[in-house]
Design a protein around this nucleic acid. Structure first.
Lengths: 195, 195, 195, 195
DNA sequence: CATGAATGAGCCTTCATTCAT
DNA sequence: CATGAATGAAGGCTCATTCAT
């Protein structure tokens, strides 16, 4: 069974993600990516039109992988809060392996030209769509309050988790598995104010 | 009264922030910055050693401006929750004017090479230090719970606010002044869970 | 038979020598060298890391060519004095074609930054090593006196020849083949003093 | 007595020689020279039209100083061979202090653009003119042979001395005063061949 | 006169992209 | 299909020179 076109595309995207991750978009070079993928530079252009397109397709690819993994991960869990904890944990592991790229997807971007930022919006939207379904399930199950704008809730959850992970992992060099996810998620659920 | 060295430095940094903002670090060119500042390319190098240094000094400059403004803004307000609302609102306005650059400071970065990311840590730390003082005041005044790790609380607050603003402003194109800051902050204080 | 990597390197170095020769190191530009070699500017960097490296490799290349040619030239000549005459003559021709560059190798340098001067020492040393062998042969054959420090002898021979050629060719515009090499070498052998 | 125009010119040229010496022509900057001369950059241009002119006037200045010093130094010496030894020794000291610049004058140049090389010819010529007078004196006094072209003799003497000094001082890091000038000059007078 | 801030031409170097093999 | 040699546009940075003060 010889590897088909899709396999090669994946192989290139995996390499690209690794290199984008290590160097960021601008300092990542096609040469480095090709070397990482153990193919020739020209071959990259057989599968992708440009560096920009390779980047975009790579983050879409990784996003889909992330969402698929999440769906699988939470399928046996009933409680929404616990699902969120599972996703947050998984996201931590994911970040550890995909660092920069993951952030591009899930957190706020910066230093990118508007052009690149635009190319990431759709990806963010689909993450949010996935999370929104979870949130609606939580509202339905009366785990989550229904008296506040849902998008606001979503962004409070996600922003709280993301920012905690980002700070802990990238700035304080804590390992993903050592982060107290439960505390974070509980804090977001229960609020920071004194009741 | 002829403009002195500091004035020119500020003039260049303002231009730099505008251009970094518009194009991101890598696509911003010294030529563009010089043109924006209405000076010659060489002049930039009379005041800054390199593009990297100009970037770093610019974000430190804007951060200090942001913190100074915040201090001024909240000095007559007693309640910490309201102080946070004021800061969140101001931050929205600030983002509107400094967009990308502000985020570099306040949100999560991405796509940057590790080198640049490192240069931003100190800046982030000083923002967090400022916010932490606020949070400790809130704990003392019994507005904020004291049974959870303070850093976690801080990151939940800030992440929630930032992510909401980011999404609303950059992705949904809402104007800063139209964002329901109170709802966001209240949600973070009261939690997203059903009590 | 397509040209291989070595051929291209040589092609670039030949062009580089021509341009360094014409303009000196600092005024020679990669653009000029590339144009001379009839290739793109970027191609130069496929074969050499930097302008400095290109310069260094070029002078090493030309030195080796010079020494190889000399070895070939003198192999059938028995008398050392005549070998030296042959080398001096060949050196004149060589200078005519490589002017500045040859001098960098064989004469005294000047106006170079210390960095560049350093990079030339090894090259000079290997020329001297080659000539020293000749000199030792001359001592053994009793053609050359053995009561004076050998390095001093070497430098008197070479300095006398070089300086004569330099003056004649570059300052008086005499053609290499019109220089009375025998007179020069004889003068050095016999001394300038009245016996 | 306020310093007049000539004094300031000399002050600048002294500084220029120091800097040209340290960095070579191309890496020497007007900024460095002005700083060394403890004046403003603009002031240099009050006295000299361009960097090139400053360089040329500086080497002419130093050459005249060198020749004047030599004339003074040898005025009480009768024997030409000893005069040459004195000059060679003084030249060594001079090189030590003016290194690169001296060489530009006295040895063979290299790596310079033709333009600069041309500007040095006159200077070299006047050194040779001075030495030629000495040589003619030697011929008259029957210290030096008269059966060989005088220019050839001159260049053999000077080339032998210069090359020895250059090698010893710059490549072998010997101090000027430790060089066996007598051996060198004797070798040139007596020849390198076995009599 | 003296100054040094301002300038922009110019150059080395990088790298996405192309294309002949 | 796969390759990687070749390319040239583009950008950071330097520095001789100018000129307003």
């Amino acid at each position: 069974m010889k590897p088909n076109r899709k396999d090669k595309e994946h192989q290139i995207m995996e390499a690209a993600l690794k290199v984008f991750n290590e160097y960021g978009f601008y300092k990542a070079t096609i040469a480095k990516i090709a070397k990482e993928a153990q193919i020739g530079k020209g071959t990259v252009y057989e599968y992708f039109d440009s560096k920009k397109q390779l980047f975009e397709k790579s983050i879409i690819y990784i996003k889909e992988k992330f969402i698929d993994d999440c769906v699988e991960l939470i399928k046996d869990e009933k409680e929404v809060r616990k699902k969120i904890i599972l996703i947050a944990k998984y996201h931590g592991i994911f970040m550890q392996n995909h660092a920069t790229t993951t952030e591009i997807l899930l957190s706020n971007s910066a230093l990118l030209s508007k052009e690149i930022i635009d190319s990431m919006m759709d990806v963010r939207e689909s993450i949010y769509t996935f999370l929104m379904e979870l949130l609606e399930e939580g509202i339905e199950k009366k785990e989550i309050r229904d008296d506040v704008d849902k998008k606001t809730l979503l962004l409070c959850i996600w922003g709280g988790i993301m920012t905690n992970y980002y700070q802990r992992m990238f700035l304080e060099k804590t390992k993903a598995e050592d982060i107290g996810t439960e505390d974070i998620v509980n804090t977001i659920f229960e609020g920071i104010g004194r009741s």
